[in-house]
Design a protein around this nucleic acid. Structure first.
Lengths: 175, 175
DNA sequence: CAGCTGACTATTGTTAACCATAGTCAGACC
DNA sequence: GGTCTGACTATGGTTAACAATAGTCAGCTG
């Protein structure tokens, strides 16, 4: 019953153990999903990372109606992931295109991780992400701030209020 | 107009450039979203990584009705991310709990990346992921198979059919 | 067999996401 | 002002996701 030693789960620590004493009612993941937790948002962001900027291209390449593209683009602009900028080609009227903001750019690891998961477990993609300088495939992975690669089984879930304590304890052991 | 030099986007290469010559109609991301692209799936998986295994705990901790929990748990079992196992406590009848499979475990980087994005841009979480051995915070990042940290601007999107060619070219330049 | 109780199933209703389609608007040019 | 056309807005309809609630079922024990 409950979690097995071999289960790929994080370890709860401090006030978070036992799990029964709390619940993550409005956690960060839930808040992120409120903004981007729908199909068209994910796919529009994917297209933005591929360099798509124009309204009709977004609608066509994502495969949604113009009304859906309009609503979603507006929402992503309102939320700050995209910014709408005017441009003007000679002989044409002012139009607007959509560019990723820093907030939008920070979403790329999510898309990469999702693509990676889908690559392995759903269906291999027809494309691949590669590091331009060395040509090696790119993937999302977990690392700690010391640079160690980390698996989920090596991870502790720590309450923020106790974070300082754990840091101090680690510093002491280094002394 | 179109993409700026400074835009945080990948570079399209080979048959993928120009972008107008193709579209990612049923890409890997879209296929992944078909399975997990709803709020309750994300949150149930989050709970599974926190060690939740029992039906009533999933429903309560995620904050959905039992019927939603049942439907989503079933779907995640059918898709292979969770497995349903019987257990029996003394004096009680056989019950079942839900455990992550390897396929489910591979979803953790997606959740971590999403949490990271939400942490920075939505609202800081009350908890933190830390590397057990050294105590440092854990994050999702992009790396190439050679171990280089990579930003989105340093990434090429390569067609799979051309991937071997790029590899061979890289090998030649090493000779 | 009856009782218990956790894990669903069933039903009705709401809302968000999305489709198809028609219509309007804005910003240029002539 | 008229025309053009890309970017929406509006409308009616469908579907998936979800809530609230009642009911059924399964696997034990006594």
């Amino acid at each position: 019953m409950a979690e097995l030693e071999t289960d790929p789960i994080v370890r709860l620590t401090g006030a978070l153990d036992p799990r029964g004493g709390w619940s993550a009612s409005r956690c960060t993941i839930a808040k992120a999903i409120d903004v981007v937790g729908n199909r068209s948002a994910f796919l529009i962001l994917r297209e933005a990372f591929y360099g798509t900027t124009r309204f009709d291209d977004f609608a066509a390449r994502v495969g949604v109606t113009e009304s859906v593209a309009a609503a979603r683009l507006k929402a992503l602009v309102d939320e700050g992931l995209l910014v709408k900028r005017p441009y003007r080609e000679v002989g044409e009227r002012t139009r607007y295109d959509y560019h990723l903001t820093e907030m939008g750019a920070d979403f790329f690891p999510v898309l990469t991780a999702l693509m990676q998961w889908g690559e392995r477990w759903r269906e291999p993609a027809g494309v691949q992400l590669r590091h331009r300088d060395c040509g090696a495939p790119v993937h999302a992975e977990l690392r700690c701030d010391q640079g160690h690669p980390v698996t989920v089984r090596e991870i502790d879930l720590v309450p923020k209020s106790a974070a300082g304590t754990a840091q101090a304890a680690a510093a002491d052991s280094e002394d």
